[in-house]
Lab assay of single mutants.
Amino acid sequence: EPEARKIVEKLINNGLSPEDVKRWAEKNNNPEVKKAAEEYQKR
């Protein structure tokens, strides 16, 4: 999901860690963003 990846990169560029992004995604019920954050961590 390229859109989710863009969101993850934007949040990380704004100073969030991938863990923060995953928590944000869970709080906002956004499994695509959570998955993208996990993939981002593996890179």
Score class of each variant (00 low, 15 high):
residue 15 G to A: 03
residue 7 I to Y: 06
residue 20 D to S: 05
residue 3 E to S: 12
residue 30 N to W: 15
residue 5 R to W: 15
residue 22 K to L: 14
residue 3 E to H: 10
residue 31 P to T: 08
residue 34 K to M: 14
residue 4 A to L: 05
residue 33 V to D: 01
residue 3 E to A: 11
residue 29 N to Q: 08
residue 42 K to V: 09
residue 22 K to S: 06
residue 2 P to E: 15
residue 38 E to C: 09
residue 28 N to C: 14
residue 21 V to D: 00
residue 28 N to K: 04
residue 27 K to V: 11
residue 1 E to D: 12
residue 14 N to I: 13
residue 11 L to R: 01
residue 25 A to H: 00
residue 21 V to P: 01
residue 14 N to A: 15
residue 23 R to G: 04
residue 2 P to Y: 15
residue 12 I to E: 02
residue 10 K to M: 15
residue 18 P to H: 06
residue 17 S to V: 02
residue 39 E to G: 05
residue 8 V to M: 10
residue 13 N to H: 12
residue 29 N to P: 01
residue 13 N to G: 12
residue 6 K to V: 11
residue 17 S to A: 05
residue 28 N to L: 06
residue 5 R to G: 06
residue 31 P to W: 12
residue 39 E to N: 06
residue 2 P to M: 15
residue 43 R to C: 09
residue 21 V to S: 01
residue 7 I to R: 03
residue 26 E to I: 09
residue 38 E to M: 08
residue 15 G to F: 03
residue 12 I to D: 01
residue 10 K to E: 14
residue 29 N to A: 08
residue 42 K to N: 10
residue 39 E to I: 07
residue 21 V to W: 03
residue 30 N to K: 14
residue 27 K to F: 10
residue 27 K to M: 13
residue 3 E to T: 12
residue 41 Q to T: 08
residue 2 P to I: 15
residue 28 N to R: 06
residue 40 Y to L: 06
residue 27 K to C: 13
residue 43 R to P: 05
residue 7 I to C: 13
residue 26 E to A: 06
residue 17 S to Q: 04
residue 11 L to P: 00
residue 7 I to K: 03
residue 42 K to D: 07
residue 32 E to T: 09
residue 18 P to A: 13
residue 10 K to I: 14
residue 43 R to I: 11
residue 5 R to C: 13
residue 18 P to V: 15
residue 19 E to W: 05
residue 6 K to T: 11
residue 31 P to Y: 11
residue 24 W to V: 00
residue 6 K to F: 09
residue 4 A to T: 05
residue 6 K to D: 10
residue 5 R to Y: 15
residue 10 K to W: 15
residue 36 A to Y: 10
residue 11 L to V: 00
residue 10 K to V: 11
residue 9 E to T: 07
residue 14 N to P: 00
residue 23 R to Q: 09
residue 7 I to V: 07
residue 35 K to G: 03
residue 3 E to V: 08
residue 25 A to V: 00
residue 40 Y to A: 03
residue 29 N to Y: 05
residue 30 N to L: 15
residue 15 G to T: 03
residue 38 E to D: 08
residue 26 E to W: 04
residue 35 K to H: 07
residue 8 V to T: 03
residue 31 P to H: 09
residue 12 I to V: 07
residue 23 R to P: 00
residue 18 P to M: 12
residue 12 I to C: 06
residue 7 I to T: 06
residue 29 N to T: 04
residue 14 N to R: 14
residue 32 E to Q: 12
residue 29 N to L: 06
residue 19 E to A: 08
residue 32 E to F: 11
residue 27 K to I: 12
residue 5 R to S: 10
residue 17 S to Y: 03
residue 29 N to V: 04
residue 13 N to M: 14
residue 19 E to K: 04
residue 36 A to K: 03
residue 6 K to G: 06
residue 24 W to G: 00
residue 14 N to Q: 15
residue 21 V to N: 01
residue 35 K to T: 07
residue 15 G to S: 03
residue 43 R to T: 10
residue 32 E to W: 12
